[in-house]
Design a protein around this nucleic acid. Structure first.
Lengths: 252, 252
DNA sequence: CGATTACAAGTAAGTACTTACTTACCTTAG
DNA sequence: CTAAGGTAAGTAAGTACTTACTTGTAATCG
């Protein structure tokens, strides 16, 4: 009954190397099964935390017996690190478990930034970065949740993520602001303070959406990512604009 | 051996109604014991999460047998909610477990706001709120961590905390901004966007300090709370200031 | 070709241990 | 004495992980 339902849900996660003909409970080659278990475990860990998820639950959701989890992964911890590897955690030192692994977060952000920087339009830069981050967070909520768990548990991977992603973003934005200050476009404020406000707003927005604002009926942040990104960029940019009435010189 | 050490640590948490002569394992009146257990559990929960902390560990750290935890609290969940009550989680529906309980978070913020509002100085209001929040978070990191765990585990208490605290703050600031807009002091931006930027910056700052920036040698946010609060308030206020060169007119 | 073999994928039913919670019994202040 | 604070030693229900066994597939060989 529930097993049927779980098996059906698990089927969505099947890598689909020969999808369609495949039942969740059916036979599967080792790599596909491994990948499927990783994907199921990622979802469950991010929903209930590492300790809050049992290997039995993972097995049931994947539609297999518990024992085959331990055929593919020596321990539950092994499964945990396999997830991190699978997410290709921004060059965390490990190679992805599969070709399907996603690219590091920061690359996406930098790409969008690079494109925006071309026009040297401040609003486009900040809006682009904000939107890119918001979209990424919304598109992969599991990862954000997992990262929060990692950070709370003081896992070293969280520190590495900071260094490889957030720190890079901070330094990029800091440099950008300093440059614009030298060019006279921004007033003389502490660049890091501006960065903290901007990045803080974006991340906080994603976190609230992720953790608190799930029920659509009682949304407090009932704006699209586009609106939010634009709002953040506008307010922060106006906050650092060089001079009165010079505010619209660059944008639009 | 470890029991001795734990007992010594637990002694720090003893309410000290007749402190000094008290061994952790010694006899204690029910209220004191209850309070001590709550304090120990709060620390452990915030370090390892609810599921990651066993009642046995709590008992050992408190220097008592596991059974007395269940004399004072019917279930582990009961202990959990007692912690929330103890922290005076903004009238979550229960009265504090003891007279020593702290006041609700939001009250502290509102107090500081009320004081600042007197002078109707925008900068003082925003700076005051930011500083109050930052100081509160720094002074009680356990609570922030516990709250993050609550939110990640999708505990209903997290929702309640949102409603009773954050939402109140959001609405207060939103109303404040709308009022100042009507008075012509602020320009016509979406008030909620401003609030999100401001509150986001503050909370993000606290979270980063709590989760990532613990090692003083590699701090990225190496500013005092006062500096941070002032920086956040200045940038956001300048971002919503009504007119060029009107920035000092409002602080009458 | 069909039968045999080899082996990976899969499972049911454990094991050893931990968990939240209980029971029956002490101990001591008032 | 009595009642409340405290405990040692449980219990039932998990928990991660193992064992002994079955099945599907596909290459090998008479």
């Amino acid at each position: 009954m529930t097993k049927q339902t779980d098996a059906a849900r698990a089927a969505e996660d099947v890598p689909a190397s020969q999808a369609g003909a495949q039942q969740a409970g059916g036979r599967m080659c080792a790599d596909d099964r491994r990948l499927q278990i990783v994907q199921v475990a990622l979802r469950l860990f991010s929903e209930r935390g590492f300790r809050g998820t049992t290997t039995k639950e993972i097995a049931q959701t994947a539609g297999v017996s518990e024992a085959i989890i331990f055929r593919h992964f020596a321990t539950k911890d092994d499964l945990y690190t396999a997830i991190i590897d699978y997410k290709g955690c921004a060059g965390l030192g490990a190679s992805p478990v599969s070709a399907a692994a996603e690219r590091p977060v920061i690359e996406q952000v930098c790409h969008s930034v690079a494109a925006a920087v071309e026009g040297s339009d401040d609003l486009a830069v900040f809006e682009g970065i904000a939107l890119s981050m918001l979209e990424h967070h919304r598109g992969d909520p599991d990862f954000l949740r997992l990262l929060m768990y990692l950070a709370l548990e003081n896992h070293s991977l969280a520190q590495l993520f900071w260094d490889k992603n957030v720190r890079v973003l901070y330094e990029f934005l800091g440099d950008y602001i300093r440059r614009r200050q030298r060019e006279g476009a921004f007033r003389d404020v502490e660049p890091n303070a501006v960065v903290r406000v901007f990045v803080g707003a974006v991340i906080h927005h994603s976190l609230v959406n992720l953790l608190w604002d799930r029920d659509p009926a009682r949304r407090i942040f009932d704006v699209s990512n586009e609106e939010a990104a634009r709002g953040f960029a506008e307010i922060v940019l106006r906050g650092v604009a060089a001079d009165p009435s010079a505010k619209d010189s660059d944008s639009k």
